[in-house]
């Protein structure tokens, strides 16, 4: 069982029905990685074959959701996934304790921390290979779910995350999150945060873009 959502199919331009599952299990994450690993391998081969510089490779190419599965035994960890057309299209892991807001207006108040989020390799845009996503909008659907989780927890929509460099534009310009800045404690990745007002604006579609 899961929540009915829609995602955009790029080729047809249509919105298609999908299911957003909450409470993914260890087994789910292993199934996801088995499904995605072959596509990661195929992309490595294609990138190498095309001589694409390493710095331009998708930055989450090396991830392995199966290795993140043990975290699920913790109460503070939740995993969500979007499935449609018989496959897992995107996954997100969140934490609901131990993370406080950093933006001054709400500093010190708890938030939902997005520990990991990634779409399936066939949903990546890789311009160097001329690859376009099969489904679009998966990241938006999952971040929307993180905001909803934050509200349900009483965190009023506050969400924080560390974006990989290739994703900074999405979180800053598309979602409208505050760009707090590089975080030396997290590999110098840029930390982004939704304040309560920004989360409201994102959900209502009036984000700062």
């Amino acid at each position: 069982m899961g929540e009915r959502v829609q995602v955009a199919e790029r080729a047809s331009g249509q919105l298609v029905e999908a299911t957003l599952h909450e409470g993914l299990t260890t087994r789910d994450l292993e199934v996801i990685e088995r499904s995605w690993a072959a596509h990661r391998a195929e992309l490595v081969a294609a990138l190498m074959g095309a001589g694409v510089e390493r710095r331009l490779w998708p930055e989450s190419l090396h991830w392995d959701w199966g290795r993140k599965a043990p975290l699920l035994e913790l109460l503070l960890v939740n995993a969500f996934g979007v499935a449609c057309r018989g496959g897992w299209q995107a996954v997100m892991m969140t934490k609901t304790a131990g993370y406080d807001a950093r933006v001054s207006s709400e500093a010190g108040k708890p938030l939902v921390y997005v520990d990991f989020v990634e779409t399936a390799p066939w949903n990546w845009t890789i311009s160097e290979l001329g690859r376009l996503p099969v489904f679009k909008g998966l990241g938006s659907v999952l971040i929307r779910r993180a905001v909803q989780q934050s509200r349900a927890e009483g965190f009023r929509g506050r969400v924080g995350l560390h974006a990989l460099p290739q994703a900074e534009r999405f979180y800053g310009q598309v979602c409208g999150m505050t760009r707090v800045g590089p975080d030396a404690a997290k590999q110098d990745l840029v930390y982004f945060e939704f304040t309560r007002q920004q989360a409201d604006a994102f959900i209502s579609g009036g984000g700062d873009r």
């Binding site: 913790l74 109460l75 503070l76 609901t96 304790a97 131990g98 708890p110 927890e153 009483g154």
Partner: peptide, 12 residues
């Protein structure tokens, strides 16, 4: 919500 936070952190 505070107590749920406490339980999660204690388990961690």
């Amino acid at each position: 919500a505070v107590l749920r936070q406490a339980l999660r952190l204690y388990q961690l």
